Amino acid sequence: MPPQFRPSPLALAVLGLLEAGPLHPYGMQRLIKQWGKDQVINVGQRTSLYRTIARLEQAGLIAAVGTDRDERYPERTTYEVTDTGRVTTRLWLAEMVATPRNEFPEFPAALSFLMLLSPDEVRLLLAERRQSLTQRLAELDVDLATEIEGYQLPRVTLVETEYLRAVTDAELRWTTEILAALDDGSLTWSREELEALAAIDQS
């Protein structure tokens, strides 16, 4: 019996790309970046891609169909999705779309220990973050252009970018609100205040 495979964005991407036809790992990585899917799928490390492909093959979700030998490039194995892989892709998609997950991103984790910094330090750091978010929002607006070389793209090809823009916009507005609260003093804290609170909790 093949091993159980835990869904991941990268594994879903591999299966999804192979729906269009056989590919080798380099081709998968190139397409993910070319189509802008690297905004939501981490393909920065080639080893992670190869590891995911190996596990998908071991689980019977994809299969090797041939090896290219070209003196200009290293040997490349081409893969295709299996029937089981096609079924699994749709099951994963259904669950990922329908079910919210707590993915434990690092920013909320850092916010949970914000009191270890001073309000002035936090103000400077969040001002830097706001600048980055503003730039990111402008980049996403460019990415949302629905026309490439005169060809009108269907909206469905850009929905993940729409989502990223909405999330980035919401975070930018929240960050601006927190900065305003730090500026007017309605959000502040001191080490002494926190130490006193900790003493109450331990009593």
Rank of each mutant, 00 (worst) to 15 (best):
M115V: 11
I41A: 09
R123C: 04
D184V: 00
Q131Y: 08
S48P: 07
Y79E: 04
D120P: 00
L91S: 15
Q202T: 00
P108W: 08
F113N: 05
E57P: 02
Q39N: 09
T67G: 04
Y26D: 14
Q4T: 09
A198K: 08
A145Q: 15
L23C: 06
G60R: 11
L179C: 08
I178P: 02
P3S: 01
L31W: 09
E19M: 15
R30P: 06
L93K: 07
V81D: 05
L31I: 13
T84M: 07
D70R: 14
E75L: 03
H24Y: 06
F104D: 09
R69C: 05
L31E: 14
R173Y: 08
M28W: 06
A127P: 01
V167F: 02
E19G: 13
A170K: 13
V87L: 14
N102S: 05
A54M: 03
R90C: 03
G16A: 15
V97K: 06
R130S: 11
T176E: 15
S203A: 12
L158M: 11
E139T: 09
P100M: 07
Q4L: 04
A110I: 07
L179W: 02
P22W: 04
G85T: 03
Q39T: 06
D141I: 00
P25M: 14
E57T: 03
S48A: 15
L164N: 13
